[in-house]
Simulated assay, not measured.
Amino acid sequence: MNLIQQAFQVPYSFNIVFTKGLFSADNQKFSDFLTNFGDTRFQKKILFLIDAGVAENHPSLASSIQSYFKNHPNIILVDEILVMPGGEIVKNDTQYLDQTLLAINKYGIDRHSFVAAIGGGAFLDMVGYASTIAHRGVKHIRIPTTVLSQNDSGVGVKNGVNFLGKKNFLGTFSPPVAVFNDSDFLTSLSERDWRSGISEAVKVALIKDLPFFEWLEANAHAMANRDMEVMHEQIFRSAALHTNHISSGDPFEMGSARPLDFGHWAAHKLEYLTNFEIRHGEAVAIGIALDSIYSQLLGLISQEEVNRIIHLLKNLGFKLYHERLGENDKLNLWEGLNEFREHLGGQLTITILEKLGKGREIHEVDFELMKQAVDELKVTLD
């Protein structure tokens, strides 16, 4: 006897709560969740971290949180509410990860307590990663504040920081215990951040849901003009598609396929090439357009279908080309493709379009054809 074979399953479930005025006195959704979650025999604490941009745009947020918990003494709010930069800086500079871990230690956040992050996707990534590695995992709550984090990244299961010049080189798969999408946070977004996240809805519609793509076409101008009701529907439908894919497929990405990263291999590289001057969602819009043109050059979709995709992205306000794509005879882009393969492990797997509403996985890229796609994308500037 020289073999023990072990297998077990761990169920995960969490709710994505859509609300308004999360920390208003008459909103009990957050307190009810904390009170009813887990073992009631243990005293629960909660540590809050806030994206500095959110804190600046919502100056009463910290005091609202403090007032809220005065009415709910069964949960201990720790004395300090940490405010840190948002965006990729919080994932690039390890001091913020260190500060988060030190706070978890200082305030005795154990595995029956909570770390709540309020911010955009990058901020949630870092705090989620810190929460996952502290004590081998303390409970983290996501409160996304951007369109992109409410409709995609904040409702998923991935956490991470950048390292060695590579996006998400350090990271974990660890679901939050809850996500709270508060629509009030969207009202203070800049035009770029309002628009940026819609690209993730375009992405998931193109690979999974033709009727949703057609809805996006019909409502592009309304979203670009900050119609809140239309944006709410987009966020809900996009979040549902993303979460349904995660739960029905390969949630911890054991294989090499990542269909939800359609358009992302080029986007990740472009973010680095521009020193993150370009927003993630802006880079994804460019990546979607590039891979859509490549799909057409392969003969999978028609020129008319490509034109519809380009037209939608332009109606949303996206610029679909950046000069860094063509630098060094596009060899920087080729490097990005190799880095994407390395990040996935195993063989290269990227998603292109078989038709509108349906993605197809491929394992090889004709880079001469991809270079042609870059050249054709440049024409969209005209």
Rank of each mutant, 00 (worst) to 15 (best):
I133Y: 00
E80A: 07
G255Q: 09
T243H: 02
E376A: 12
D291N: 07
I278V: 15
I109D: 07
F340Y: 08
K167T: 07
L331I: 10
F23W: 10
P85C: 12
M84P: 06
L331Q: 13
H363L: 01
I4W: 05
Y68D: 12
L49R: 03
Q43A: 01
V17L: 02
P175V: 01
I75A: 06
T40K: 11
D152F: 15
L270C: 02
P251I: 02
L164W: 06
D291R: 06
V78T: 15
S174C: 05
E233G: 06
E305W: 01
H232T: 11
P144M: 11
S13W: 01
I198D: 05
Q5E: 11
E80V: 10
T19Y: 08
Q95F: 14
F212D: 00
I278M: 10
A218E: 10
Y129W: 05
N151L: 13
N168Q: 10
S131C: 04
R111S: 12
R142W: 09
I310V: 15
A220N: 08
R258F: 04
A7H: 14
L333C: 07
G287P: 01
V284P: 01
G86F: 08
N57A: 15
N275M: 05
M228K: 09
D125R: 00
G317V: 03
I89Y: 04
T351E: 03
V157Q: 09
V179I: 09
N219R: 13
L320K: 03
K45D: 07
I246L: 07
P73G: 10
G345M: 06
Y96N: 11
F185A: 12
G87E: 04
N15C: 08
E327L: 13
E217R: 03
A240T: 13
H112A: 06
M126Q: 05
H363T: 08
Q234K: 06
L102G: 10
L270N: 04
E342Y: 05
V78H: 08
I362C: 03
P176S: 03
K378T: 03
H58P: 08
A55C: 14
H135A: 15
D375R: 12
I350K: 00
N159C: 15
F30Q: 05
A7R: 15
F48N: 01
P176W: 00
N2S: 15
I278F: 02
A285W: 04
A239V: 01
L206I: 04
D93F: 12
S238E: 00
L344N: 15
L3I: 14
K314S: 11
P176T: 02
I133H: 02
F8K: 13
L381Q: 13
F163W: 15
D93C: 08
V284N: 01
N15K: 13
N27A: 06
A25H: 11
K139Y: 12
A52M: 07
L313F: 05
A373V: 09
V161F: 02
K208V: 03
Q234F: 05
T274G: 15
S247Q: 13
S67C: 07
F123W: 01
Q99N: 05
N307V: 00
